[in-house]
Design a protein around this nucleic acid. Sequence first.
DNA 1: CCTGAGACTGTAAGCGCTTCCACTGCCGTA
DNA 2: TACGGCAGTGGAAGCGCTTACAGTCTCAGG
Lengths: 363, 363
Amino acid sequence: MDGRDVSAAGGVTIYEVARRAGVSIATVSRALRGTGPVAGATREKVMRAVEELRFTPSRAGVSLAEGRHAANGIVFPNLSGPYFAEVLIGYEEVASELGRSVVILSTKGRDAIRDLVRELAGRVDGLVVFGSTVPDDVIDELVASSLPLVLISHAERPGAVTLRSENLASARALARHLLGHGHTKFAFLGAPYATGDDVDQRWQGVREVLGDAIEPVLTAEYTVESGYEAALRLLGAGNRPEAVICSDDEVALGTILAAEELGLSVPHDVAVTGWDDIMAARHARPALTTVRQPMRELGALAARALDQLIAGVSLEDSHRTLATEPVIRRSCGPHSEEVAYRGKVRPHEQHPQEPRAGESRPR
Amino acid sequence: MDGRDVSAAGGVTIYEVARRAGVSIATVSRALRGTGPVAGATREKVMRAVEELRFTPSRAGVSLAEGRHAANGIVFPNLSGPYFAEVLIGYEEVASELGRSVVILSTKGRDAIRDLVRELAGRVDGLVVFGSTVPDDVIDELVASSLPLVLISHAERPGAVTLRSENLASARALARHLLGHGHTKFAFLGAPYATGDDVDQRWQGVREVLGDAIEPVLTAEYTVESGYEAALRLLGAGNRPEAVICSDDEVALGTILAAEELGLSVPHDVAVTGWDDIMAARHARPALTTVRQPMRELGALAARALDQLIAGVSLEDSHRTLATEPVIRRSCGPHSEEVAYRGKVRPHEQHPQEPRAGESRPR
DNA sequence: CCTGAGACTGTAAGCGCTTCCACTGCCGTA
DNA sequence: TACGGCAGTGGAAGCGCTTACAGTCTCAGG
């Protein structure tokens, strides 16, 4: 009842609780956090005061005193497609379970990325960053500040943990599957890609198997719209490919739309494949052949890895690759026994210089 | 060079900068924030020291001193479907633009919601909460603590700003459109719904027009899976409806899947409609008739409203409804001129006791 | 030459909390 | 009966920053 901040927004402090309970703030703190001994009766009094005052410790105060934020950050390019949202789901779930809040940052269309990332870095205990959402020198800076850092789908990097889904082996498997359908002329739709990111690896994988039979084609972004426009040009021109391997499902969906628009039948006139196995892939017409990747698990693992780093466990320079799984549906060509589903591709099948690579190269 | 936290994680403080620049911490602060006068030369020195030390003010310190977090929270049930993700996109974009970080919290599958929300509330300056993600008494508590609060798709509530998309009028329009197709027996697939939330309003709207010709059917959740299962039962039984109005696109997608499974043709044997116009709606077979709602705008407006509340602008008890737009595609029945697209439904057409309501009631 | 107004800058008091340290009783043991 | 040990508690020093408030100088006006 002495003025100042009585009942102001979130205004009750530990001092008021202490006064009400007739103890010192140290005791209130101990009672609440369970650190140090507190007599049963005292604890009772404190708890009652806390209840009555609806006291919640000020996060800023706690953070400052503890020297930690109990929060994690995550930086992604955007949340438009299902991919990042799914990873985020897995991430948030685990982080929350571990008692950490999640602060998000989307870089899409931002110019002051450096400042935004710094600001974010300042309010979390660790950060997850996707592929090429942040300039490399900013990453350097983060690493230099020894902020716990997990990179998803980013080239391996000393000082940071990296995590990704398998791409190379499944790309090869997908390419072989398409060869099995008898296609001979391919296009890879979905650049631009940055060295070492997922799309780059997918391209490397199919390229290894298909050699000169496949050609890369740019899209502005990884969206249905971009895929549609690029595919319209690609398929509208003469000498069109028999199969279009797309960098992700959204581009593939756009490609199917474009084919439809041009009066081409998928997969009869042109086969189309995607990547990720997003929800819409199942509902597309025809249903989309794609490569399923464990998006939520990716997020969950990132959260756990980060938690360990923050706890001081040194798994720096640890790099992990999760298994993916080709999902064969109608869009890649008529089914037959011999080209059936090939099962899960495990990371250990992934060998950059796999000797078999050249064998099945066409022509 | 005096030990303690030299080059520790994010460890450089304003004191080190001050020492390096040969000034007091007050001056460093003023130079950095632009509050108070600082001589040009001094500013230079400070900036140089800041650069060299890669100093970023400790967020906790700033928050504590300023008494604010420069962060907003948002509570949603999950991020599985495109709906919440889209709203989040709009929200994050604006919040970030306004210099506020975004802390997220998903309540899906959580039991300690109350604690999680409290914890979240403690680290932000304001909160956006979706419909029925949080128990009402927790909302009460937030309101009581006078934390700036924006509720999306929640029944109006004194002490908080609410924001939603129009449902009633568009539900009526959709129902009339379906009547125009000649359907006479309907089902509304997608309960459970809480009083005052979006689905409840949609149900009220179609019910007004269709009266006893429509029957509500429960689903466990608003997901493709749930929709599929519920639709399988609904359409598999005798006496099946001619048209199924679904609470959202995902349930509708599941319904289409179920129809296919049962050998029923959509829309010939059964018409299906959704709500939201998510990406997959366009790619479904047949393409899904639905009601488009401005999801990103919803998020953006929430962010702005919250910012105003935080700034002290009193728009308490302000309630806003955004226009929606029916999108007629193939899934609701064969097209003909007279049942064509009816244009945008503006909020002012929405009158709970609209007199026309009864007129078109069937039978 | 004196004086008042600024322009700059430093000192120090918090912001709300955690936690080290010291202090008080009490109990069991020597 | 004296004493070490320990449960229970309060005092007070920070954590890193912002911001009155109060100095110090410089300079124009009188």
